[in-house]
Simulated assay, not measured.
Amino acid sequence: MSLPLADPRTIGPRIRMMMPHLTPLEGRVVDMILGRRDFDQSTSLKAVAEDAGVSEAMIVKIAKKLGFDGFKDFRTGLADYNRLPTAELHEELSPDDTDAEIARKVFRTSVHALEETLAILDPQALERAADLIFGARHRDLYGVGGSAQIARDVAHKLLRIGVRTSVFDDAHMMLMSASLLGEGDVAIAISHSGTTTAVIESIELARRRGARTIALTNYATSPLATIADVVLCSTAQGSPLLGENAAARIAQLIIFDAVFAAVARRDLKAAERNLAATMGAVAGKRRGA
């Protein structure tokens, strides 16, 4: 997945997506640089190297590993990113925060994730995902832990418009499902890290059986993303308490809201008819209905 460097909003996501490919030392250096709110066009290579306790050559090497031409290119991109209004939305939680302050920070972290996810969202990947889901014979969703909850939400959305899916959150059941898929079917894998073994193995098997595959992940260069036919990416900045998953979960749900709407648009009359039927079926289950 290639992110346009001309758009400053993609700089933060680009750096975070490449972090898993850095060594622990390189990761600590990047964290130090990202933590400097005074980092701008005047920040020298020498100053960054001295603050990080590494050589200038290592700083240049890290910049290139992150996908930049060198330190100057990295500095320009990060300085532009830091000037964005959303750059200040993410704030770490503090033991001194009031409950109201915590709520504000948590909401702003999610807003930040949504803004950046929209900036990196690939419209062509969204279109391909909608086409595959709409045209599939069977649609099986795979995810464990928090990702399984997203899979269930996706299945619920699609069922409302008459698009039937199956959700599997057990390693054995995922493999059994994948073994029965074939041409005309689609397997949808959800994994924040993109490294969940059970999900990766199931997608690999589904591909061998001839099914098409869609991945929803936070890392475009993750093992899961490299084997999927279509990759949809969220991006979220982590914090010690909330981690990345909290904000990424919101972004991933919204990505599939967009996919849901795109699938519905492919046969709007049928979607509206099925939506009326499914809503009517449960209407009597509400108090006062």
Results as ranks from 00 to 15, higher is better:
residue 141 L to Y: 10
residue 116 E to V: 14
residue 49 A to C: 12
residue 20 P to A: 11
residue 18 M to W: 00
residue 69 D to K: 14
residue 121 L to P: 02
residue 221 T to M: 10
residue 34 L to Y: 02
residue 43 T to V: 00
residue 130 A to F: 07
residue 196 T to H: 14
residue 166 S to R: 14
residue 244 E to L: 00
residue 102 I to T: 15
residue 95 P to S: 07
residue 12 G to M: 15
residue 27 G to C: 08
residue 274 N to D: 13
residue 287 R to D: 03
residue 103 A to M: 14
residue 87 A to V: 05
residue 87 A to N: 15
residue 25 L to C: 00
residue 123 P to H: 13
residue 9 R to N: 10
residue 164 R to A: 14
residue 285 K to E: 13
residue 22 L to N: 12
residue 10 T to M: 03
residue 90 H to C: 04
residue 218 N to V: 01
residue 260 F to G: 05
residue 45 L to K: 01
residue 194 G to F: 09
residue 251 A to M: 11
residue 39 F to P: 01
residue 109 T to H: 13
residue 177 S to L: 00
residue 108 R to W: 08
residue 152 R to L: 14
residue 10 T to I: 02
residue 74 F to T: 03
residue 22 L to R: 10
residue 263 V to T: 06
residue 84 L to S: 03
residue 169 D to T: 11
residue 285 K to L: 15
residue 233 C to P: 03
residue 179 S to E: 14
residue 139 R to T: 15
residue 156 H to W: 02
residue 213 T to C: 09
residue 251 A to H: 07
residue 260 F to V: 05
residue 5 L to G: 04
residue 223 P to H: 07
residue 284 G to F: 10
residue 247 A to R: 11
residue 148 A to W: 10
residue 86 T to H: 12
residue 119 A to S: 13
residue 103 A to Y: 10
residue 282 V to G: 03
residue 148 A to K: 06
residue 185 D to Y: 08
residue 9 R to H: 15
residue 275 L to S: 09
residue 98 T to W: 08
residue 139 R to A: 13
residue 223 P to C: 09
residue 189 A to W: 06
residue 149 Q to W: 02
residue 259 V to M: 09
residue 75 R to A: 14
residue 261 A to Q: 04
residue 215 A to S: 13
residue 101 E to L: 09
residue 131 D to M: 07
residue 261 A to M: 12
residue 163 V to D: 02
residue 35 G to D: 13
residue 21 H to A: 15
residue 158 L to M: 04
residue 264 A to N: 04
residue 242 L to K: 08
residue 232 L to E: 04
residue 151 A to Y: 11
residue 247 A to L: 02
residue 164 R to T: 13
residue 93 L to D: 01
residue 212 R to N: 11
residue 53 G to R: 06
residue 42 S to V: 02
residue 202 S to A: 15
residue 258 A to R: 10
residue 177 S to T: 00
residue 205 L to D: 10
residue 213 T to W: 10
residue 220 A to D: 07
residue 63 A to M: 02
residue 69 D to Y: 06
residue 20 P to H: 03
residue 63 A to T: 07
residue 237 Q to K: 13
residue 253 L to H: 07
residue 75 R to S: 15
residue 121 L to I: 08
residue 239 S to I: 01
residue 208 R to V: 04
residue 210 G to M: 09
residue 67 G to S: 08
residue 159 L to P: 00
residue 219 Y to L: 11
residue 191 S to N: 12
residue 241 L to K: 05
residue 215 A to R: 09
residue 88 E to K: 14
residue 16 R to W: 09
residue 33 I to F: 03
residue 132 L to Q: 04
residue 185 D to A: 07
residue 106 V to D: 01
residue 78 L to T: 07
residue 174 M to L: 02
residue 264 A to W: 11
residue 253 L to K: 12
residue 96 D to G: 01
residue 165 T to C: 14
residue 7 D to L: 09
residue 158 L to K: 05
residue 280 G to K: 06
residue 277 A to V: 13
residue 41 Q to P: 00
residue 20 P to W: 00
residue 62 I to P: 01
